[in-house]
Amino acid sequence: MKDPLYTCMEPILTSELIPVSLEDPVAEIQDFDRVVQFYWPRILRFILASVRDRDIAEMLTQDCFWNAYRGRKSFRGDSSLHTWLMRIAVNSIRKFLRNRRLQFWRRVQESAIQPAAVGDWLPDRRISPETSTLVNEQVRAVWNATAGLSERQRTVFLLRFMEDMSTLEIAGATGLQESTVNVHLFRAVRAVRKCLEKAK
């Protein structure tokens, strides 16, 4: 079932509303601000888990929303707003990784997230120290396991298991065929399971 807020935001960027929006730029900016408020955490965490660098993740998230704002007229509503934004994010990540490969002299990432720091993400819940340690280890194990995946496998894995997207939505966000998504997902799951087994 769709979130009511999600549903009410769906038509914000549809082309039918553009003439109305252009008449009232303030309302348009307010509408888009709501989109940013709602989708920012989703896009940020997906990009962070993909590029594994906090500063770069924030920069790419900003770029993603800027591109969405500039390209809002091209959103025809064929897919959900979430899928459309994810597609922009996937393209931003791909472009960034391709450029980074060329910039081989910039290998050292000062703000890269270390596996040990991943445990800090856990909220301060009232859980026993034993449970906290166990969950910490589990989180770190998955974080390390996703590091070993190829770019495409990691993308489909994160979209499926972190963002709960269906195969069809993943295909829409990545531009891949549904069958290709299934193949990458299958391989990703097998690789992650192997890594988790080794971590035990």
Binding site: P41, R42, L44, R45, W121, P123
Partner: peptide, 26 residues
Amino acid sequence: ARFEEPVAAFKSAIHDWSDRETVPRL
């Protein structure tokens, strides 16, 4: 469970982290 539990823990942790992050205004 050996696969599903760690993945669920990871998902929960990163969701909690991103929800705590400050979202900039437009």
